[in-house]
Amino acid sequence: MEDFQPKIEAFVCTYCTYTAADMAGSQRLQYPSTVRVVKYLCTGKVEIVHILKAFEAGADAVFVGG
């Protein structure tokens, strides 16, 4: 398990977490490349089925940031 790098799917709000993810970029903060971001206008729109589908597609974890 030592080399295990979880695939993390991030569902994020465009106003806060997406902006923060961009800011991480402008500061060149490094994080694992297995993170994928899907932008929502508001995480209020994240449906349970979206989360389940992400797992089905192969995600090891889902992060909702809003």
Binding site: E9, Y40, L41, K45, H50, K53, A54, A59
Partner: peptide, 27 residues
């Protein structure tokens, strides 16, 4: 749209189909 228990509200440009297409294409 998310809260509606009957799925009666749809937000244009942010439909479930559009999100699911993106999520399904993840890996």
């Amino acid at each position: 749209a998310t809260a509606c228990p009957r799925g009666a509200v749809v937000v244009a440009h942010n439909t479930d189909e559009q999100f699911l297409a993106k999520i399904t294409a993840l890996y």
